[in-house]
Write a protein that binds this DNA or RNA. Structure first.
Length: 424
RNA sequence: GGAGAGGUGGCCGAGCGGCUGAAGGCCCCGCUCUCGAAAAGCGGUAUCCUGCCAAAAGCGGGAUCGUGGGUUCGAAUCCCACCCUCUCCGCCA
């Protein structure tokens, strides 16, 4: 969430940012209730001051054995008024709160202004799109031919948009997870964590999935629990309501989790294959950093994610999301897109974002510097490192050969018991 | 699921209706002592909002003792609900 001071002191800046994002806000309601809040609060604090003062007096009189009935009687009215004002204040505050909680982050100055994904500039392209002497097969055909993916049986078990990996396929998925975790922990210095896959409402609100995007989530019937759509949610909330010592920063975590998404509103999109599933695996990177360093940390986070693709020898490109396409909580986002030969397109395989203090304010994560007064909010970042199902899909499509075999990248072979290729 | 105990500041821990934002201790930070360090002594040390102020400092006001309600002139303290932790019993991967 945004700092309310920013809205009061720099409303035009925020309005422009919301416009660039294409988000409509009820500014009138905000201003009405903010003004009302202030009026009530002034009055309320004055009455509370009186009450505190008189209470003190009563205490002193009682101690010295005097009769305080007269002033106690007088305070009765004040007390009633205080209760009434507190109620009124609560109403205005919850209206303000509702508006602010539904308000997205302000994009960083370096974020290109644009309407939708067609306006996202390409930052760089790494590697050349894989070329074939024949029409490359889609990964679902390769996977089904090789007997390592079975979407029909997955549909019997759960329904559409669920994966079933078999044999070498299951092992390859696990190999990818292990390879990514090993890379990030051993070479990039992240600490591995394995968090809960179900979280409560407060946690889901902290990272920004709630209150606005409840329909995108799987909710447990009758309980206030949700399946996580990404490890970002539980991992960022590890330090919920904590004040960290500055010497601990940056804190960097990597986590493997399954991710669950309802994919509401994506009917008919990417219906085949591993691209858009209700359940998929992901290795996530999360950072808690000092504000001064967060944009540098975003670049290194991006590089950490890119390293996975480079080691796997997959061609990819990096784009910068424009103001109209950037996520709710993010101030800046890079997407990494991997080359998918069968569809002849680059597909998102990682999303790396700096949230600045947006999530830190919601989750109340601060840090304290020695010798300095007060605390400051940390900046949080996260990125996929990478989406595992999509990575496997990319490996199948890019590594396929005309005879139906798929070459396993060198870095994965130790994780596959030395296996060099998948044969149908 | 049944029975009990408990949630207080960075940490430990006292308080159980009024002079308590909270004793005492630890940690940490200054200073004294020392060639330096340790020890000892002295002092300081929560957060958020807000008013005065250009700002900082400073001074003033409000809030915060798991969360939310209630009782009361007044609540860390009493009552209710919820959340969490711990112990014992049962069940269970």
């Amino acid at each position: 969430m945004l700092e309310i001071k920013l809205l009061r002191e720099n409303l035009e800046l925020v309005k422009t940012a919301m416009q660039n994002r294409g988000t409509a806000i009820d500014w009138e309601a905000f201003q009405t209730h903010d003004a009302r809040r202030k009026t009530i609060l002034c009055e309320l604090e004055e009455l509370r001051r009186q009450r505190n003062h008189v209470s003190d007096q009563v205490a002193r009189m009682k101690r010295s054995g005097e009769n305080a009935d007269a002033i106690i009687e007088k305070m009765r009215d004040v007390s009633v008024t205080i209760k009434r004002l507190e109620k009124d204040l609560g109403v205005s505050e919850s209206v303000i709160d509702e508006i602010i909680m539904a308000m997205p982050n302000i994009p960083h100055d370096s974020v290109p202004v644009g309407r939708d994904e067609t306006d996202n500039p390409v930052i760089k392209t790494v590697g050349e799109p894989t070329t074939f002497t024949y029409d490359p097969l889609p990964h679902w055909t390769i996977g089904e031919n090789a007997g390592i993916l079975d979407f029909a049986r997955a549909a019997k078990i759960a329904g559409a948009r669920f994966p079933l990996y078999l044999g070498v396929g299951a092992r390859l998925e696990r190999a990818l997870i292990n390879f990514m975790l090993d890379l990030h922990t051993r070479e990039h210095g992240y600490q591995e964590v394995l968090p809960p896959f179900i979280v409560n409402r407060k946690t889901m609100t902290g990272t920004g999935q709630l209150p606005k995007f409840e329909e995108d989530l799987f909710k447990l019937e009758g309980l206030d629990y949700f399946l996580i759509p990404t490890a970002e949610v539980p991992v960022t909330n590890i330090h919920q309501a904590e004040t960290l010592d500055v010497s601990r920063l940056p804190i960097t975590y990597t986590a493997y989790t399954p991710c669950f998404r309802s994919e509401a509103g994506s009917y008919g999109k990417d219906t085949r294959g591993l691209i858009r599933q209700h359940q998929f695996n992901k290795v996530e990177l999360v950072k808690f950093v000092r504000p001064e360093t967060s944009y540098g940390e975003l670049e290194s986070l991006l590089d950490n994610a890119e390293t996975v693709l480079r080691r796997l020898e997959l061609p990819y490109r990096v784009i910068s999301l424009c103001t109209g396409d950037i996520g709710f909580s993010a101030a800046k986002t890079y997407d990494i897109e991997v080359w998918m030969p069968a569809q002849h397109v680059y597909r998102e395989i990682s999303s790396c974002s700096n949230f600045e203090d947006f999530q830190a304010r919601r989750t109340n994560i601060r840090f304290k510097e020695k010798g300095k007064k007060g605390t400051r909010l940390v900046h949080t970042l996260n990125g996929s490192g990478l989406a595992v199902g999509r990575t496997l899909a990319a490996l199948l499509e890019n590594g396929q050969r005309e005879d139906g075999t798929v070459i396993i990248p060198h870095v994965l072979r130790p994780y596959m018991g030395g296996m060099e290729k998948i044969a149908p």
